[in-house]
Every structure is written in structure tokens, then in C-alpha cells.
Design a protein around this nucleic acid. Sequence first.
DNA 1: TGAGGGATGGCCT
DNA 2: GGCCATCCCTCAC
Length: 194
Amino acid sequence: MNKLDRNFYLQDTLKVAKELIGMYIVRNYNGTELIMKITETEAYIGSIDKACHAYGGRRTKRTEIMYGIGGYAYIYLIYGMYNCFNIVTEEKEKACAVLIRGGSPEKGINEMSQLRYEKAYNELTAYQIKNFANGPGKLCIAMKITKELNEKDLLSDDFYIAKGKKQNYDIKCSKRINIDYAEEAKDFLWRFYV
DNA sequence: TGAGGGATGGCCT
DNA sequence: GGCCATCCCTCAC
């Protein structure tokens, strides 16, 4: 696969969030290559964004990786049970990131199906297929993305993002999800999907 | 097809 | 001690 280089991640966060649509998350899990096509992202823009963990320059042990240079994974536990996978963007100290909100399985589908439902893919119901990875927590379950991958460099060989074939996606944008606490920032159109 | 609620634990004040 | 960038089941329609 055609791995993205560092410069890609150093661009404007909204641009990165949009261009990630249609690209691939590649992960080597116990010798099996898992590939997920990205279908939904959200941008979180550092100190100015009330929905961002780094809003107002808030800097803690958890958010420290966001203050580093782009191209690293920021993975955290949400609601006590689920992981969310983010990609840090832009230069050091910007504390911006893109949340991967959804994807569709491309390779290693049966392995991912086992991780997700403990069933072979061809045994899944239509409902389960529809809900395979259409949410940040679900996507992380399917690819076994856990805290162990937090702060990992996405230029590594076993966990990275790869360019898709040149395709024209009809990319839509909308408000972000479940950030009602973020006041005016909840209305920013920083969610992208196909 | 959609609303309602419970599970669950790290993080931060 | 309260808050969460979620998911899934149940139940009604």
C-alpha cells in the first residue's frame, strides 16, 4: 500500500479530515493485514475549539500527544468502554486532530468480523453488516485499535494510513456528533463523510 | 425507524 | 464526584 508521508499530516486539519475520506487504515494484527476504508471523519481544531480536548490550551498527560507533530495516533477511552482513534495533525503545539468516525472493511474482513462479532463475515445479519464500523467505537473494535497503539507513529510499518485509488467521492459535510456541550463550536461543519 | 436508558471507567477539577 | 468525540438492546409504532 502507498503509505502517506509526514507532510500530509502537517496540512490544515480541515483539509486533512476531508482528504482522509476514501483512504485506508492499514494495521498488521498478529501477522494479518487489516485494511479499512475511511468513510467518515471529524476535525478537532486545538485551542479554539470547545469540543477539542485541547481547548483553551488545556494540556494534560492524556492530551500531550496532540501537542506533538502531526502523524501520530491519539487513542483514548470513551464512556468507559470504547476507544476512539484520532490522527494528530499540523505542526507541534497546534494540538489539532482528526477523529476517524467510520469505515468499511476492505481486507482481513473475516478477522475483523471475528473481532467485532465473534462470527464469520458470511454469518452476519444485514443489520450487523450495516453497523460493522459505522462509528468510532465500532471501528476500533473491528481493527482491535486499543490504548496500546496510543501515541504510535503512523509512519510505522504495521499501523499507517495509505492513499486510495484516485476516486471522486461525493464528500458531504455537516455538524459534528455528540458534542452538545461545546456551545457555538457544536455547529461548525467539521464532519466529513461519503 | 426511532426514542430511551443502562453499561462502564479513566480523566480532570 | 461528575463528565464523556459510544454502543446496543428493548419497546412502541
